[in-house]
């Protein structure tokens, strides 16, 4: 039974990480309906910038964290400006392939700067945060990441609900033309949503880096695992991303524990195909209505 709970806890925390990683992805999809294949590289970018500030410039963790988020924000803004704006209204495959190209470029650049080795951050999380639940110890990093995740969820909950920019973003997601005619600056909203998504991705990347170590290949693989998560949760629902992430994480953990470990990485995709066959728009997603 203890094995079960250990797997459960592992799965939940892993799933929560997937959920957090998927949040940025959903944000981009929600406002600009772009399927971002460069999401894993955005995660990696955040993790590496944080690493650079911690290791090279020896800045303490909290200021480094804030600087990283600011840089990621700026980077997201820039990406939208330079690469995605010219493609508004172009066929889907071009947009998808553009993000694939971007992913390849970013991966190349990161490998060029840092190489493909596994890095770890210096210890900066106090050990006093260890929690113990009925004999199962929970690592402090998981607690910190959980808290970070909740804080970000709350911030974005409030952001979407009460700030004008958040409401604009929701309106653009809902109906672009109606938003345009009501005076919403759609282009600025696109840029803003990319910037915020890159910021969230950077945050998730740091959390992932703290837990698993930092490696471009692994982080970009997680970027691809975001797809089952968001399909399960519905492509345009942030809460759905967390739920989907948790489900996928728990399933992965149990497959790894009770079946064969090698099946672990494929299970999400098998589930994905199953869901697409049965309920194509996800558990919480909106059904698209289309007219000729």
């Amino acid at each position: 039974m203890e094995f079960f709970w250990q797997l459960m806890i592992n799965g939940l925390s892993l799933g929560f990480l997937y959920g957090i990683s998927a949040m940025g992805f959903v944000m981009i999809y929600k406002s600009s309906s772009v399927l971002n294949f460069a999401h894993g590289e955005l995660l990696a970018l955040g993790a590496y910038i944080f690493l650079a500030f911690m290791m090279w410039f020896k800045i303490p963790a909290i200021p480094a964290f804030i600087i990283t988020l600011v840089l990621c924000f700026a980077f997201g803004f820039l990406v939208e400006r330079v690469f995605l704006r010219p493609l508004i209204g172009e066929p889907l495959i071009f947009v998808i392939m553009l993000t694939v190209g971007l992913a390849s470029m970013m991966k190349g650049a990161i490998l060029l700067l840092w190489g493909g080795n596994l890095y770890t951050y210096p210890e900066f999380i106090p050990q006093t945060l260890t929690l113990s639940l009925g004999g199962v110890n929970i690592q402090p990093v998981y607690n910190v990441s959980f808290m970070l995740g909740v804080v970000f969820l709350l911030i974005f909950g409030f952001f979407f609900k009460y700030t004008s920019q958040g409401i604009f973003m929701r309106s653009v997601a809902d109906n672009q033309r109606a938003a345009l005619s009501l005076g919403v600056n759609v282009r600025r909203i696109f840029a803003l949503s990319w910037a915020i998504a890159a910021l969230v991705a950077g945050m998730s990347g740091i959390v992932l880096g703290v837990i698993n170590g930092i490696n471009v290949h692994e982080l970009s693989a997680i970027g691809l695992k975001v797809f089952p998560v968001v399909i399960l949760g519905g492509l345009d629902s942030i809460a759905g991303a967390i739920v989907g992430g948790v489900i996928i994480g728990v399933l992965e953990s149990f497959t790894g524990g009770y079946l064969t470990p090698s099946l672990r990485d494929v299970v999400p995709y098998i589930i994905l195909v199953g869901i697409l066959m049965v309920k194509p728009y996800g558990l919480f997603g909106q059904v698209e209505i289309e007219r000729v």
Binding site: F83, P86, L87, F94, M97, L98, V100, G101, L102, A103, S104, M105, M106, K107, G108, A109, I110, L111, L112
Partner: peptide, 18 residues
């Protein structure tokens, strides 16, 4: 050079699309 190859490949795709 291996990462540079990856970078150039991505750049070619992006430039052609744009």
């Amino acid at each position: 050079m291996a990462p540079l190859k990856e970078f150039a490949f991505g750049l070619a795709i992006v430039l052609f699309i744009l």
